[in-house]
Design a protein around this nucleic acid. Structure first.
Lengths: 116, 116
DNA sequence: TGGAAGTATTGCACATTGCATAGTAGTACG
DNA sequence: CGTACTACTATGCAATGTGCAATACTTCCA
């Protein structure tokens, strides 16, 4: 008597995340500079509970390589050093364009799903 | 003097689609049985204008293999035969669970993006 | 002293999936 | 007969999220 939909729902998330992680990470960093471990926490608190650490670190590196993020290292008393990331000018532009992409996309999905 | 955000916005879509195509195709077929070429049209009319034919055919095959769709061939006077797909019982269950996954996910993204 | 736990980052191999491309085939129109 | 539109299939590529292992620093407890 065990419905598997919960399991399936969790697995869905990793595919749904594709493309959206960039947006989510940029949005979180626009709010305030942050380092990987911290960004993970903020995303999970925001509702993306399933997000894996490796995904966030990978995304940060990619966005950095693309020139959307700058970074600086800050030593910490409570553990290893922290690599902070901040939005660049291009990063802010990209955040704006991705936000509107997302809005358009989400509307289309709602339209298709909710049309009975 | 040419802003590239439009180009970028279009490119975003193919990543955003990941995982959502399953949901969109199931939703469209729940409305009414359909064949590949027709499903493509309906998705585009619904707002997913960039979706590629190969993606839809691939998704249909995958959902069929997974037992979420059944299929039957109907000859056509206006061209080649048409392979119709219909939701199975499992398909309907999956549609329900994916719809709720999507809702939860979209809410989380909105929350993260719109938190100033 | 030593070891577990929490913090913080990196690298790699892997699976999924959307897409471009090419090919096959039927109908219709000029 | 060639072009266009319809309709489906197969192949290989590219992007990206994830698991896993490794490294390393700090605190705390036995």
């Amino acid at each position: 008597m065990c419905n598997t939909s919960n399991v399936e729902s969790s697995q869905d998330q990793s595919q749904l995340l594709k493309g959206v992680l960039d947006l989510a990470v940029l949005a979180v960093l626009a709010d305030e500079d942050g380092y990987g471990y911290d960004v993970v926490r903020r995303l999970r608190e925001g509702g993306l509970e399933g997000v894996a650490e490796a995904s966030v670190y990978g995304t940060l590196r990619r966005l950095f390589v693309d020139g959307l993020l700058s970074s600086y290292v800050v030593p910490s008393d409570e553990g290893p050093h922290r690599k902070y990331y901040a939005l660049t000018k291009d990063g802010r532009k990209r955040l704006v364009s991705m936000t509107s992409s997302w809005a358009t996309f989400a509307e289309a999905v709602e339209r298709i799903v909710n049309r009975k």
